[in-house]
Simulated scan of single mutants.
Amino acid sequence: MTSEHPILETRDLTIRFGGHVAVDHVSCTFQRGTLTAIVGPNGAGKTTYFNLISGQLKATSGQVFLNGADITRIPVPERTDRGIGRAFQLTNLFPSLTVRENVRLVAQAKAGKGFDMVSVAESHVELIERAEHVLAEVRLIDVADQVVAVLPHGDQRKLEVAMMIALGPQVLMFDEPTAGMSVDEVPVILDLIKTLKQDMDRTILLVEHKMDVIRSLADRIIVLHNGALVADGEPAEVIAMPIVQEAYLGKAPEAA
């Protein structure tokens, strides 16, 4: 860890559903320019932790901080405005519009102009330029004029990322980005995340089950088990821990 003020922090973050503690006093900081993988078995609390950070769920106790400001009680739209973006949670594409129009609508909303298609006139040069820049970054510029409904699944996933980037987030959250993807499509998304990671102003959080994906992307791994944070460190260090080897990789730890 560096001495830099964390861009994102959770302090004793907890949520209970009846008598079940789904996330149990998780305290963790995330620095700018890093990619942290969040791992653990099914039911460990990974997605619930994501939901608490992005605002889909309200914490029973504890706090979430973004750039030092307490955002625990503010709603999802305001968290988005402040810089938290989440992909692969829901598909929020406009299938009858083109790729460019999808991204331009998000850029328009970010600019405070709403989602009125009539007002997205050609005179909004800055919105068009913003959409073009984002599409180039996610390598969709060649299909910018295609209707979304005819795009391959992998390109639709990339478009989801483009729409998130158009909102200008500081924190990018990916919840199992390769889930449901074909073998051929997975490298496309991984390459995209690697490209996004090169921007040191961005902080990336990634929930993923595939260890090969985690090894190729993560600067750091945190492990949740029964809602609690049980490990936190560099990938090689965490993957070698007996608790990870036994509980999460399904094998006994290798002999020294």
Rank of each mutant, 00 (worst) to 15 (best):
E101C: 09
M163L: 00
M117T: 14
D199H: 12
E185L: 14
V103L: 06
G112I: 11
A179M: 00
G112C: 09
V188R: 11
M181T: 02
T98Y: 08
G180H: 05
L105R: 04
L90W: 09
K194S: 12
D191R: 14
S182H: 12
I189S: 02
P95Q: 06
P177F: 03
T98S: 14
M164N: 01
R202W: 10
L151H: 01
V134A: 11
Q170V: 07
T203S: 13
A131Y: 05
N92K: 15
I193L: 02
M211D: 11
A166W: 10
V207L: 07
E176T: 06
S216E: 14
H153A: 08
G180E: 02
K194A: 11
P95T: 10
P169L: 06
A144I: 00
E160D: 08
R139S: 05
S216V: 06
D116L: 15
E185M: 14
I193N: 10
D145K: 07
D191V: 04
E137V: 09
E137R: 15
A218L: 03
I128F: 07
K113S: 12
S123Q: 13
A149E: 09
V118N: 13
A107Q: 13
E129A: 13
L93A: 12
V207Q: 03
A121C: 08
V188N: 05
A121S: 04
H153P: 01
D191W: 01
